[in-house]
Amino acid sequence: MSWMSTDVLLAITVGVLKAIVILLAAVLSGAFLTVIERRLLGLWQDRYGPNRVGIFGSGQLIADMIKIFFKEDWIPPFADRKLFVLAPAIAFASLLLSFLVIPITPGWGVADLNIGILFFFAMAGINVYAVLFGGYASANKYALIGAMRASAQTLSYEVFIGLSLMGVVAMTGSFNMRDIVNGQEGLWYIVPQFFGFLTFLIAGVAVTHRAPFDQPEAEQEIADGYHVEYSSMKFGMFFIGEYVGIVLVSALLTTLFMGGWHGPLLPPIVWFLLKTSFFVMLFVLARAALPRPRYDRVMQFGWKFCLPLTLINLLVTGVVVLLTA
């Protein structure tokens, strides 16, 4: 290893350690969110929520983990075993990998990719297979219907999740997330790209299958959809994967539209965490406040309202960028 000087080795070690810290922070925030969400829902609905374990219910997560680990890890005999095991791994890993491109502070962030945003789109595309394979491998009618709904919904909303961000890309002139954050030094993109922000927010909720876009797992109609046959830690991975998705979309909204780490007085990391927590709470509030629309309405809303809106937004942004350039 003569070609590796101590400086290079040190830089690699620090980089890897930072990446591990970010990974653990992402997973832990996803896991804690399962409890925080229930507490917040309780608060907004004028009840207590889980407050028995530990101080103010802070130990609830440990109790939940113990419970989920000791459940029987059951694979139905009629299931397609390989795909059944693979699906939760894809669900968890693909969203977690997207944290790779998010710049947290000027010094923190895993990778500084040129294709930045596109990497997130790619991972969101791979994420569809978790639901699709999970639904297919379960060999269960409810799971299959859930998987169908989820894949159709995700495909439709992915069409304009990409287009909604192209305005931001056009204004920055780069796919790189760091460039995008630096481009918001003076004015956050939420102001000039307000419609891009709205459509990305909606599509982000739809892609993570959160309420009110949780038709794929609607309890009342299809008994939890694609993960109805899953138990124990495999279900846990789907479950926590969903919360990791919430944190991811919140972090993306912060980075792309709310100026990332920029903000007065407080250090960058605090601003980033504050803004991300704000969007996470918005997700929870949406679940508490909004009823679930009918499935075909969701599809029509996506194709007939959001898609034209993003196209017009992109067109206007393009004209403005051309005129001011």
Binding site: F121, A122, A124, V128, Y129, L132
Partner: peptide, 15 residues
């Protein structure tokens, strides 16, 4: 390649 082929077209195939 990943977004269009693996993420969209193959989803329809599997579908």
């Amino acid at each position: 390649e990943v977004i269009v082929y693996a993420g969209a077209i193959m989803v329809l195939f599997v579908f």
